[in-house]
């Protein structure tokens, strides 16, 4: 295959992340969930805590789980440890975001990797309107922050992780479906939510065949978070004045952006795929505050 070295390296990184994040292979045989110490740490990507082989937690799931506890805000102000742990998760995500924006989407996230593989299937390809990218900010605000923190079905009890419950296709694929397949749906009382989430997953997988990483661009709250932090990131893409605006960068971009039009875009996942594609070598990585650092290209 004619894949550039950079792309091969990225596929190797995504594959390695998938393997390293799923070292508890016994979980599939035992049909159990790993609950060891490594679950205190988050994988920089969307990967369900409840996946039988997962040895790391999901940052989006962790955030919802922490902020949905009863008295979270009070605990934060009084320094309760189960509330303060949110600072660790947010700090971890911000560190990645300020360093290199959505870089983990390109190099680590297993669900992003899956969508990229699906897009390789020959089919009619569809573009996604640029305005749809706003969707993920609303998902972050509504389903990850506001609803888990405020919606209480029982006074005095905690809230629910609504993004996980009604949207997350990674959770359905890596945890919901495998656990139901192993245990049977009787054990899990698969009801309306399971059916809904299965439909969401199937639609997203089908959409991924026709469009580039649609979930990452339209729905992913982690991408929204890193995209916002990435506006001020140290490591980013830079386009020189020598750019001839031929559009070859957009053609190969996994998130379908024309970097010459959107330099510093919160959508850019720093995959570097556009660098070797540029016929005039106008696209480079740059590292430094406000993007005015040392350049490095291929």
């Amino acid at each position: 295959m004619g894949l550039p070295a950079w792309s091969r390296l990225r596929i190797a990184s995504q594959t390695a992340s998938l393997i390293l994040g799923n070292l508890y292979v016994r979980g599939w045989a035992d049909a159990s969930i790993y609950t060891g110490r490594s679950k205190m740490f988050c994988i920089p990507g969307l990967h369900c805590y409840s996946c039988p082989s997962s040895v790391l937690a999901c940052p989006v799931g962790s955030i919802q789980s922490i902020i949905s506890t009863n008295g979270f805000l009070g605990g934060l102000t009084t320094g309760r440890s189960d509330s303060l742990v949110i600072l660790g998760v947010i700090g971890f995500l911000l560190a990645i975001g300020f360093l290199a924006g959505r870089i983990a989407c390109a190099w680590v996230c297993p669900f992003g990797f899956l969508q990229e593989m699906l897009y390789r299937i020959p089919s009619r390809k569809l573009t996604v309107p640029a305005a749809w990218r706003n969707g993920k900010y609303l998902v972050l605000l509504l389903f990850v922050l506001v609803l888990p923190m405020t919606l209480r079905m029982v006074p005095g009890a905690g809230g629910d992780p609504w993004f996980c419950k009604v949207i997350c296709p990674a959770g359905t694929l890596f945890a919901g479906w495998p656990l139901v397949l192993i245990h049977g749906d009787g054990a899990f009382q698969t009801g309306f939510l399971f059916t809904w989430k299965s439909a969401v997953l199937i639609l997203i997988l089908l959409w991924s065949v026709g469009s580039k990483r649609p979930f990452c661009r339209v729905l992913c709250p982690l991408g929204a978070f890193w995209g916002l932090a990435g506006k001020a990131s140290v490591f980013r893409m830079r386009v020189e004045d020598s750019c001839i605006k031929c559009g070859k960068c957009r053609a190969v971009c996994p998130v379908d952006i024309a970097i010459f039009r959107e330099e510093g875009s919160p959508e850019c996942i720093r995959c570097g795929r556009c660098i070797p594609e540029c016929p005039v070598g106008a696209i480079r990585h740059t590292a430094g505050l406000n993007g005015a650092g040392n350049d490095s290209g291929e």
Partner: peptide
């Protein structure tokens, strides 16, 4: 079409 993302996201409030 540009605004279709908004009802698409709000659709997720139905299962909630």
């Amino acid at each position: 079409l540009e605004w279709l993302w908004l009802p698409m996201i709000l659709l997720f409030l139905i299962p909630v």
